[in-house]
Computed example of a mutant assay.
Amino acid sequence: MIGIIGIAIIFVMVFGGYIAAGGKLAIILKALPFELAMIGGAAVGAFLLSNDMSAVKHTMKDIGKVFKGPKWKPEDYRDLLCLLYELIRLARQNPVAIEEHIEAPADSAIFSRYPRIQADKEAVELIADTMRSASMNYDDPHQVEEVLEKRMEANFHHAMHSSHALQTVADGLPALGIVAAVLGVIKTMGSIDQPPEILGKMIGGALVGTFLGVFLAYGLVGPFASKVKAVIEEDSHFYQLIREVLVANLHNHSANICIEVGRQNTPAHCRPDFADLEEALKSVKKEAA
């Protein structure tokens, strides 16, 4: 919702200010379809040229994050802590029983209590692979933490590609606007014998290209890239929380301490209250019993 409001403010303030200052939209509207076809078409072509189809699909999908915001909400962080608590408790009480949950998370009774987490392939694999490693006696906390760090860094780098792709397009739009404007000037020079009032309109139409390139770059595409980056960075905290809790588990801290380590490493605006988390963990214990 806030993304739509931001776009509306941009258009109202730019074009509203132009009209209020006495500007006429007729010249812009007449030139807009042609300038937009040149600049927008060239931008799309350059985007396709510099990315493979997988990256294109990824970027198109990530544009929705501008309007949806972060995937993980405060209640998801609480549910993640509860899920990890259940798994850690079970792994310590019955190392054999934990295998069915980490080998087949899709059929796990524990994971199924948290459907949003269960539906996220990256989160589930991160949890399952780390706990499986611990069950295979690969339990050096420092080595596991290093492996998790590299894995998460690779996933984050891949996720950020859409933001980088959008930013590259934004960086090129002003130059494409100049290209369109130069073509407009060339067209005008070919009609140099026309009266001044006609030449003035033709030059004004040519300058729409420069305006459009800069406007799209700094008013829309650039902010889209920044928002996508911010959302990806925000969602990455969810996976960092998994690392913090599972590494604390490998240090043989009690289950409650592991969860508290995770809670305190949760971003402040998503961090569950200590009392609320305690209530949630009590409910987990009752269900397990």
Rank of each mutant, 00 (worst) to 15 (best):
Met202Ala: 00
Lys227Gln: 15
Gly222Asp: 12
Ser226Gln: 15
Leu207Ile: 10
Lys229Leu: 11
Lys229Ile: 07
Lys229Asp: 14
Leu220Met: 11
Thr210Trp: 06
Thr210Met: 10
Gly204Val: 05
Gly219Pro: 13
Gly205Phe: 00
Ala206Asn: 01
Leu199His: 11
Phe211Ala: 14
Leu212Asn: 12
Pro223Leu: 12
Val208Ala: 00
Gly205Cys: 01
Leu212Asp: 08
Gly213Asn: 08
Phe215His: 06
Phe211Tyr: 11
Phe215Asn: 12
Leu220Ser: 02
Ile198Cys: 02
Lys227Asp: 14
Lys229Met: 08
Phe211Ser: 13
Gly209Ala: 13
Gly204Ile: 06
Ile203Pro: 04
Ala225Trp: 05
Pro195Met: 11
Ser226Asn: 15
Pro196Arg: 03
Ala230Met: 09
Gly213Ile: 00
Leu216Ile: 09
Ala230Gln: 14
Gly205Gln: 06
Ile203Cys: 02
Tyr218Thr: 13
Leu216Trp: 08
Lys229Ser: 12
Phe224Leu: 14
Leu212Pro: 00
Lys227Phe: 14
Leu199Cys: 07
Pro196His: 00
Phe224Gln: 08
Leu216Phe: 09
Phe211Cys: 14
Lys227Asn: 15
Pro223Ile: 09
Ala225Phe: 08
Val208Asp: 00
Leu207Gln: 02
Gly205Trp: 01
Gly222Cys: 01
Val214Glu: 07
Gly200Trp: 04
Val221Ser: 08
Gly200Lys: 07
Gly205Val: 00
Leu207Ala: 04
Phe215Arg: 11
Lys201Glu: 03
Leu216Ala: 15
Val208His: 01
Val214Tyr: 05
Ala230Glu: 12
Ala230Val: 07
Leu199Thr: 06
Ser226Thr: 14
Gly209Trp: 13
Ser226His: 14
Gly213Cys: 05
Leu199Gln: 02
Pro223His: 11
Ala217Trp: 13
Val228Phe: 13
Ile198Gly: 01
Leu212Tyr: 10
Gly200Thr: 01
Lys201Ala: 00
Ala206Thr: 01
Pro195Arg: 06
Ala225Gly: 05
Leu216Tyr: 03
Phe224Gly: 13
Leu216Cys: 11
Met202Ser: 01
Ala230Trp: 11
Pro196Asn: 05
Ala225Glu: 09
Ser226Asp: 15
Gly204Pro: 13
Phe211Lys: 11
